[in-house]
Design a protein around this nucleic acid. Structure first.
Length: 511
RNA sequence: GCCCCGUUCGUCUAGGGGUCUAGGACGGCGCCCUUUCACGGCGUUAACACGGGUUCAAAUCCCGUACGGGGUACCA
């Protein structure tokens, strides 16, 4: 295959859903795998649903994920413009062409009239009224009205839509790269609106015209489009573009964690997890949310997680860099059934990426968080904190939030453990240990460990009698990095100082 | 309702007629490591929706049923 061109064509009606990100990812991977081009097109043909900021959000999201398009809105390219609202005239021309060659027609019914008609039909027992070969003969269309009447209405500037004229009694078959052969009978298909009364095309018209004009070779999109693909195939035929029609691949949907329907915007709040890549600040708090980024996910982890939600290379490798995904990806390996959003798996992936992340890079990512907490430390120190904490973190903020004692004095002690480990006679022993540590020439983990062990041997002390007190003195809690590593990070002076302060506190809180 | 798509451990999945007493990962449970919490290692738990065919042989092919999902707008 050569000159592969795919597109991601989101609608700027709000934040880009994580399912959309996965669609973009699969398009990106397919393009990269075959040395093709990944195009971003903005489908803003519904003026009523346009949300300011959505387009920027889409670009930012793709950038954060590291899957930037090669061409398209916000990037440029030879098929510009890539925003459909700016291509209005093009669709107009093609819609008229279809009317002229008998594949489409004018319809003058207002939305209200259509509603009334649907209700009347429903009342009469027909619950699936649609605009089709039968009804188009009784509705107000250029097929049912006299030619001069049609001209009069058009001339008078009456509102109209242009509809696709569905052929009678035909079976439309096409091959979906994921599902194989799929077919529809035209008697089941309706006369879809192609051009709305406001002069804007519907998705159906615009996506065919643009995919053709932009020389798209493969359409990889969500399963929700499968039922209308029959219409799309017909449109390619009507335009005489059947020979260059792109291959279709319909992706399985991402389902809610409970499996009841497809994952939606509200599920984020409902299940306490992100369902968008980035956060979104809306007018109301209810409409605002945090994304994977704000939760503290690494984009590489999100990408890896998403890639495996509906796709699998067939090997037992689970961790894949973006480059490895590009190499391993193939449409044939995409599964057919919907995948539940498995948040535990997402967290596991993040943990894996955190563990192997570079300390300095983590420090950079975590800097805003530590500053916000009032922790002003050097880059080197912050990187060292990350080094000690990353093995036990799930989210980026854990690196800072669970390490308060590495940034400042111990704020609270675990009194329960204190009561259990600190005895009235402990003080002289630990003061001797503190003196011993203070005298160490090198305040480095390994030698410190030797020093403490030697001290314990001398005094006939067991680790259980010493280590918990040391840990408690330095961190206040029984959780955290290795004691000797903490000592090294804190340094001689601070370590000794903490021990002294802690011993005072312990004495004061003797049970 | 009608149309389309789907159905392997709780979840994500491997599997594309015999090598399946069905493999991996997440989660759960247990043990080891560590006298911290984790990580890690080891082990364990648990599945071919059902019924008919086809075949010497079916998780794998066909049909039906059930269940699930999607679509059914002058939204994408």
């Amino acid at each position: 295959m050569s000159n592969i061109r795919v597109r991601f064509a989101p609608s700027p009606t709000g934040a880009l859903h994580i399912g959309g990100v996965r669609t973009a990812l699969y398009n990106y991977l397919f393009a990269k795998k075959h040395g093709g081009t990944f195009v971003l097109r903005i489908e803003d043909t519904d003026q009523g649903r346009y949300v300011p900021g959505a387009e920027d959000y889409i670009l930012e999201s793709l950038a954060w994920c590291g899957i930037m398009p090669d061409e398209g809105q916000g990037i440029g390219g030879k098929f510009a413009p890539y925003r459909q609202s700016e291509r209005k005239d093009i669709y107009q021309k093609y819609a008229l062409e279809l009317v002229a060659n008998g594949n489409a027609y004018y319809a003058f019914d207002t939305p209200e009239e259509l509603d009334a008609k649907r209700q009347a039909e429903a009342a009469a027992g027909n619950h699936n009224f649609k605009y089709d070969t039968v009804s188009r003969k009784v509705m107000k269309t250029s097929l049912s009205l006299p030619a001069d009447e049609v001209q009069r209405r058009l001339g008078a500037g009456e509102d109209y839509v242009i509809r696709l004229k569905m052929p009678e009694n035909e079976t439309i078959t096409f091959t979906d790269l994921i599902r194989g052969e799929v077919s529809f009978h035209t008697s089941e298909l309706d006369d879809k609106v192609l051009m709305k009364s406001d002069g804007m095309p519907t998705y159906h018209l615009a996506n065919i015209v643009d995919d053709h004009l932009m020389e798209i070779t493969h359409v990889i999109r969500g399963e929700e489009w499968l039922p209308s693909t029959g219409h799309h195939v017909l449109l390619y035929r009507a335009f005489g573009w059947a020979a260059t029609m792109p291959d279709f691949s319909h992706l399985p949907l991402i389902l809610k964690p409970d499996g009841k329907g497809k994952l939606s915007k509200r599920d984020g709040a409902k299940f306490g997890m992100p369902v968008f890549p980035l956060g979104w600040d809306a007018e109301t708090e209810e409409d605002s949310f945090r994304g994977f980024r704000e939760f503290g996910f690494l984009p590489q982890a999100v990408i890896n997680f998403l890639a495996f939600l509906g796709w699998n290379p067939g090997t037992e490798q689970e961790i894949f860099s973006l480059a490895e995904l590009c190499e391993a990806f193939s449409i044939e390996k995409i599964s057919k059934s919907g995948a539940r959003f498995d948040y535990d798996k997402a967290k596991w992936y993040n943990q894996q990426y955190l563990h192997t992340a570079d300390d300095a890079e983590l420090a950079t990512l975590v800097r805003p968080l530590s500053e916000a907490k009032g922790y002003h430390v050097s880059d080197k120190y912050l990187a060292q904190v990350c080094h000690l904490m990353k093995g036990r973190a799930t989210f980026l903020p854990d690196l800072v939030e669970q390490a308060s004692y590495l940034f400042g004095d111990v704020q609270t002690f675990d009194n329960e453990v204190v009561a259990k480990r600190w005895k009235p006679e402990s003080r002289p022993v630990f003061e001797a240990l503190a003196d011993h540590l203070k005298a160490q020439p090198a305040f480095v983990a390994a030698p410190l460990e030797e020093a403490v062990k030697a001290f314990m041997t001398d005094r006939g002390l067991k680790p259980g009698e010493v280590m918990p007190i040391l840990r408690l003195s330095l961190a206040g809690t029984m959780q955290g990095p290795g004691v000797y590593e903490m000592m090294e990070l804190l340094g001689n002076e601070r370590t000794i100082d903490r021990l002294a302060k802690a011993f005072d506190y312990f004495d004061a809180h003797l049970a």
